[in-house]
Simulated scan of single mutants.
Amino acid sequence: MQRLLARIACWIPVPRYVRMNKDDGADVDDVLDSMLGDSLLWCRDLEKHACGEFSFAVVQANEVLEDQSQVETGRDATFIGVYDGHGGPEASRFICDHLFLHLTKHVREHGTISEDILRSAFSATEEGFLALVRQTFGIKPLMAATGSCCLVGIVWRGTLYVANLGDSRAVIGSSCNSNKIVAEQLTQDHNASIEEIREEVRSLHPDDEHIVFMKNGVWRIKGIIQVSRSIGDAYLKRSEFSMDPSFPRFHLPEPIRRPVLTAEPSVYSRALRSQDKFAIFASDGLWEHLTNQQAVEIVHNNPRAGIARRLLKVALNEAARKKEMSYADIQKLEKGTRRNYHDDITVVVIYLDHELLEDKLQAPELSIRGFMDTVGPSNFSILHGIANNA
């Protein structure tokens, strides 16, 4: 066993696995599992941000990864983005490349962060992608049938801002008496499986009796898509794309008269309280297998290092159990085939260390893209001057 560990140590990139002492909560078995287990699982086990630490993990199931994600750390703020694509990766990749840039542009212009600034960044991203679809439609018409859910979180000056389209989800874990942890869902799932969402969609389309109906046992908008809000999905928002024969899989019986889906996010903000210990941002692939309470209890009861990967592993074990398989069996499957057992899943766990909200932690200013494992400087340092002048 010692020889095996010695050999593996030569393969492991030093920066990612330097936290292997007992005090940091790392586990040799976890390292072995990461290196020798799931080749489609990527993680950053523990990194610093402006008011604590975060853990980041992604697992691929589709032939081409449709989840895109990023964490941007600045001296005074932290940005989390989880973008769950559907129909292809084009929309989620576009969001990852543009939404944060739109946000920083609006922050620079207005000198602050607010719910309205978040809405403006979402709107600019939507308009940019629809413009790209229109420009490239002649050579790449299938882009009109791609879209993405979009979940964003920002921690700045003791406030948490969250904006959401679709059914990715943000959940906060708060302590209560007896050292228990309680889950609070911060976002609304914009999914037609929820009666409230179906009623919302029907109220917006009173003249369309087929705006939402059940198909193959699943509630869907126009019998096609489950989410009621997204970025992209141009064929459900612009009449010029709605009847194009290039994507017969998404057939509409008649041209749309108004957008079927909306890109208006649900936005929420709260002043962080001392009992707020961490927040989990994840695509719906995690919540398909774990309840909110199960997820926060896993985070609360386990070491920080590798906690996002641990959440993924619990979800994947549950996905395997539902198919009367083991996770080891699923690990042997190729991407694409693996989508029959679970979705692409992205998880970011942000710890909220309140003493650091007062003491300025010297966290690195980094931009980290999930799964791609690209790391570079972040533009979020723009908020440092704003924080000082506010």
Rank of each mutant, 00 (worst) to 15 (best):
G85F: 07
L286Q: 03
V218H: 14
K237W: 11
P206V: 01
K360Y: 04
M214R: 15
I382G: 11
D97P: 00
A234L: 14
A163Y: 08
I8K: 11
G306W: 01
R321V: 00
D329R: 05
A263C: 15
A6R: 13
L4R: 05
A363P: 04
K277S: 15
H205S: 02
L118C: 04
V107D: 12
D33C: 10
S203Q: 13
D208Y: 02
G376P: 03
S203G: 07
F247C: 05
Q70M: 15
E66Q: 15
F371E: 04
W11D: 14
R157G: 02
A6T: 12
E334T: 06
K180Q: 12
I181D: 13
I231R: 09
M35F: 04
Q70R: 14
A263F: 15
S55W: 04
I224R: 01
A271V: 15
I224L: 06
R258C: 11
S239W: 00
E66A: 13
E209M: 08
W287T: 07
L41T: 10
R119H: 14
I386N: 00
T262G: 02
E115Y: 03
D116K: 09
V31T: 02
L65V: 05
A279L: 15
L236I: 01
R202P: 04
L356F: 14
I139E: 14
S266H: 11
L311Q: 04
I194D: 05
V152G: 08
F100N: 02
Q294G: 05
S193F: 03
R3A: 10
E264K: 09
Y83Q: 07
E264V: 09
M143E: 07
A91D: 04
T187H: 13
C149G: 10
C176E: 14
I225Y: 03
L65S: 02
R157K: 08
L204P: 00
L99A: 08
C51A: 11
R304V: 06
L204D: 03
F250L: 12
F380R: 00
G87H: 04
D24P: 00
F247Y: 13
F241Q: 11
P248K: 11
P141N: 08
S203Y: 08
R270E: 12
G158R: 11
V58C: 11
V299Y: 01
G370R: 06
L204C: 07
T104Y: 13
S92E: 10
C176V: 11
G158C: 10
H205K: 02
E53C: 12
G85H: 07
W287F: 14
Q2Y: 07
A387M: 02
L118W: 01
L312D: 13
E63S: 08
K105P: 01
P259F: 12
G336P: 03
F137M: 03
T112P: 03
Q70A: 15
S174I: 12
L316R: 08
I221H: 00
F241M: 12
A145N: 13
E324F: 07
L165P: 03
I194R: 04
H49W: 03
D29I: 13
S203R: 14
N302S: 03
V349N: 10
